[in-house]
Design a protein around this nucleic acid. Structure first.
Lengths: 141, 141
DNA sequence: TATTGTTATACTCTATAACTATA
DNA sequence: TATAGTTATAGAGTATAACAATA
């Protein structure tokens, strides 16, 4: 007789399940701001890299294929949350920068996200959340 | 000036990213067995609940909508990895049971998964993995 | 009336390949 | 030739609504 390991022990399964749960909460929290989770992530990265980051770099940090970035950035650009300018020093590159309006919306979004997330994560405690964050970073890298 | 929190601190973002990474590895590991990650999960649950579980319960444990279960179970049934029988005591119910072939395949699948996952999770150590599992369980529940 | 399984449909996300313009 | 961005397309996953059979 061979043993079968319970699915509820599987880290991959739990990771996906927990991720789905937080993503669903984030989706709801961001909806009033007309942001999807993806759009928010792209906007947040644009705000962080105030020097202006390329779309390839954006794809890398989001863990997406560069082809998926285009529509994402198009939308944010039309809404004037970011600008997309050709880099004069290398005309193949386009530099993404958050606008002031983009920054403001990003701050609002983070405020909305924080309240829903602390709700879900409160059972872990501050220390637990820090440990979780570090474990996840090790898996991602 | 308002502060913007780095995306790489966001638990939801990290969770999704780490989940995607492990799911991609699982996908590759399961492909030779003609199983997708979803199919594997359903099969594993069928193996665990040897009493026979209903599709509603399966949906619940997988975190999916019941309507998504049908095609999933159809496929496993055609391949004779599970059986689906009407419950005589309540004819609305259909009881899912793993076949012997299903169990064997599940064991093979778990063997394939274990080797790829330990690869990724080895940096965390046994203790780290246990702590991570517990934190994820708390989020899921 | 409530529940289980089912079908249908629209939408989002993912994965690839091929193209253009620049270097 | 190599790289950044782009377009197109097929496939997988997600979200809802409605239906038939049974309780």
């Amino acid at each position: 007789m061979t043993d079968i390991a319970p699915l509820s022990d599987d880290i991959g399964f739990l990771l996906t399940r927990a991720g789905t749960s937080l993503t669903a909460a984030a989706k709801t929290a961001l909806a009033p701001l007309d942001l999807r989770v993806r759009s928010y992530s792209a906007l947040a990265l644009a705000c962080e890299h105030s020097g202006g980051l390329g779309q390839r770099q954006l794809a890398e940090e989001l863990g997406l294929d560069p082809s998926q970035i285009v529509a994402l950035v198009d939308d944010l650009e039309v809404r004037e949350l970011i600008t997309r300018r050709v880099d004069p020093t290398d005309r193949r590159n386009k530099r993404i920068d958050a606008t002031d309006a983009g920054r403001e919306l990003c701050v609002d979004a983070q405020r909305a996200l924080a309240s829903t997330q602390t709700n879900i994560l409160s059972t872990l405690g501050d220390q637990g959340v820090r440990e979780l964050r570090q474990a996840l970073r090790m898996i991602v890298d």
